[in-house]
């Protein structure tokens, strides 16, 4: 469908195109079953950043206040890229792992499902 506009062919600027982010792209991040952090997060990343930076540095920093974070076994983590499960190549970059601008990275930590297993 398209908008009903007074002038035919109405279009408007795409306000969040990747060119507006100074060489970076947006990455959305969600930790399944952990609603202490009330919603998925949004960070800018360089597309050529090694993916391995996420489990080793970025995710532990983002979620450092959750008591589960210290217990995460990164080898057992299940990853989702834009809603579909995938196995990251830790030697590849974020873009090399198929993450475009405004992609969603979700991860689940089996056995760790929030405070008392209550998805908090």
């Amino acid at each position: 469908m398209s908008v009903v506009a007074k002038e035919p062919g109405y279009t408007s600027e795409v306000r969040d195109r990747v060119e507006n982010f100074h060489g970076q792209q947006l990455l959305y991040i969600g930790w399944d079953n952990h609603l202490m952090y009330s919603n998925p997060l949004c960070i800018p990343v360089a597309p050529d950043m090694p993916f391995s930076m996420l489990p080793t540095k970025i995710l532990p920093d983002l979620y450092d206040l959750h008591p589960d974070m210290a217990k995460v076994d990164w080898k057992k983590v299940e990853w989702l890229r834009d809603g579909k499960s995938f196995t990251p190549d830790m030697n590849e970059s974020v873009a090399g792992n198929g993450f475009g601008h405004k992609s969603v990275l979700r991860f689940a930590t089996p056995g760790l499902n929030g405070l008392d297993g209550r998805c908090i």
Partner: peptide, 29 residues
């Protein structure tokens, strides 16, 4: 470009008038 929504309700609204909502002024972005 990818666009994200909190619900089917918001997604349907976008899909009906995408030309309008591609320019949303999202504070985080």
């Amino acid at each position: 470009d990818k666009y994200h929504f909190c619900s089917d309700g918001c997604k349907d609204i976008f899909n009906d008038e995408p030309e309008k909502y591609v320019r949303s002024w999202l504070p985080v972005h």
